[in-house]
Design a protein around this nucleic acid. Sequence first.
DNA 1: GCCCCCGTCAGCCGATCGGTTGATGCGGGG
DNA 2: CCCCGCATCAACCGATCGGCTGACGGGGGC
Lengths: 226, 226
Amino acid sequence: MTGETTGGTTGGASPAPSPASPVRILLCDDHVVVRAGLLALLGSEPDIEVVGEAGSGEEAVVLADRLTPDVVLMDLQLGEGIDGVEATRRIAADGTVHVLVLTTYDTDADITRAIEAGATGYLLKAERPEELFAAIRSAAQGRTTLSAPVASRVMARMRSPRPSLTDRERDILAQLSQGLGNRDIARALFISEATVKTHLGRIYDKLGVDTRAGAVSVAKEQRLLP
Amino acid sequence: MTGETTGGTTGGASPAPSPASPVRILLCDDHVVVRAGLLALLGSEPDIEVVGEAGSGEEAVVLADRLTPDVVLMDLQLGEGIDGVEATRRIAADGTVHVLVLTTYDTDADITRAIEAGATGYLLKAERPEELFAAIRSAAQGRTTLSAPVASRVMARMRSPRPSLTDRERDILAQLSQGLGNRDIARALFISEATVKTHLGRIYDKLGVDTRAGAVSVAKEQRLLP
DNA sequence: GCCCCCGTCAGCCGATCGGTTGATGCGGGG
DNA sequence: CCCCGCATCAACCGATCGGCTGACGGGGGC
């Protein structure tokens, strides 16, 4: 289906990102003031046009499908409902709409999850407006832009082996952060205590700790849990 | 010094919040887009004038002193330097400038710390613009406005005794969240293991948990730690 | 076909934790 | 002056944790 993704001078009928037709934007953020801010900021740029606003992930998915904007500006923290990563995944799934993540946090977990979900770029809200404009124009053409601190983290992550947990380890960690003991975790996940201990040991290794309290602390800090 | 705090029709020379002279606002937020958003949003209101912007707590304290705005719109999370609570404390100290907290989180700890620091109101960024305008006008006259969810939490807190920790308990909790064992915590704080255990027991009681992992989890969630 | 990763499980041991009871000293408010 | 909240410490006990070694099966990649 998708066929031609970008190219620069597609002779298509309607959505041709060129100096003639502005970049069409869909905003997604659960905070009214942030949406208003982006609206005002982007209003000053003649070649950028906001065609829609979404206050939730679900809304963004629907509007992205209906409006087919060039770029969706997506926050990762969306309060109720699906989070920004999931919304990004669904919107970016068919490859027609580019998602540019614009959020507050530059934690490893957020960045990698967003990129894995198919985000075209990752910017921080503290970024200078010029950077945002440039990133939007890049994203419209499918080019990736990362904030400087984000780029640093990505590079660092590429170098270091792997601080990523398996699905099962995340399950264990989730129970652990409820303060459950090994026996209770085992019961909750329908496995034996021995297995729980095995997983915990590996979690400690990966997070660089050696106690459950430390593991919970690191997990919360790196936002490895919902 | 302070003398007349508010009154409604002070015959003073310069700062008289009346329909004639607009409410003078100082913005404080470390995110450019948020400041831009507030600027745009408030620009639509004729009786509200933004007289300054600060990107850090320190800057806000200086500008509040120099510009003596009617209201400071203050975010609590400010990245580098002093946080919004500390900035609020310093600005609100002499009672001439009202601080209206406008932030993302409605956790108990944030709310109470902000109010204790002297904030005149507490709004969430997800609030409707009309609420924000109304709150600003109220704050200019020293009247308190709370977002609905914030008000609920405050009421709930008034009813329930006090999930607040003592200073020493917070010290213990901080060490605990580093994943330290009782012996290490004792050494770090120059007390005996027995004392650490005593404090921990009380912390468990107050947080409604019975393990160290659970305590760290609750502490992180309620933002009881820096 | 082999190997590696993932998830599962077992047993052992010393160290640590959580709960309990009880005691001391210091400071502030009634 | 007495009481209470806070911080400090002691000793004890059973339960739990963390580290270790070793094992098995299934799925994916080479």
